[in-house]
């Protein structure tokens, strides 16, 4: 597992990008109204960082073309994205956010 940050450093509505030096590909970690989610950071449509996107509930909107993804499943909810992004398991233990290293492909 990889230590992301203290929970207090990622308040609701915020996101953080973990660079590929720590994981196989960059990962975006979100605090969606108190629930922590992690997905591959790079939009499945074109090169843009989802950690810079707009968080609305458990959906993130890509900052470049407004594709939207469900953070719970990684599935796109609107065009232009058609492919999902992978989700990653996260845990919060004693106020620290941990990222599990194996990504989940969409079933």
């Amino acid at each position: 597992m990889l230590r992301v940050c203290d929970l207090s450093e990622l308040p609701p509505g915020e996101s953080i990008r973990i660079s590929e030096s720590n994981t196989a590909v960059p990962v975006a970690v979100f605090n969606a109204d108190g629930v922590i989610y992690a997905v591959d950071d790079t939009c499945s449509h074109q090169d843009a960082s989802l950690s810079e996107g707009w968080l609305d509930g458990c959906f993130v909107e890509c900052p470049l073309h407004a594709a939207s993804f469900d953070l719970r499943t990684g599935l796109p909810t609107c065009l232009p994205a058609k492919k999902p992004v992978r989700t990653h398991q996260v845990s919060v233990v004693d106020g620290v956010i941990w990222l599990h290293q194996a990504a989940q492909d969409v079933a």
């Binding site: 843009a48 707009w54 900052p63």
Partner: peptide, 10 residues
């Protein structure tokens, strides 16, 4: 500065 841009754009 994508993140801040999008906040202000909205």
């Amino acid at each position: 500065n994508t993140k801040s841009f999008n906040r202000r754009r909205r």
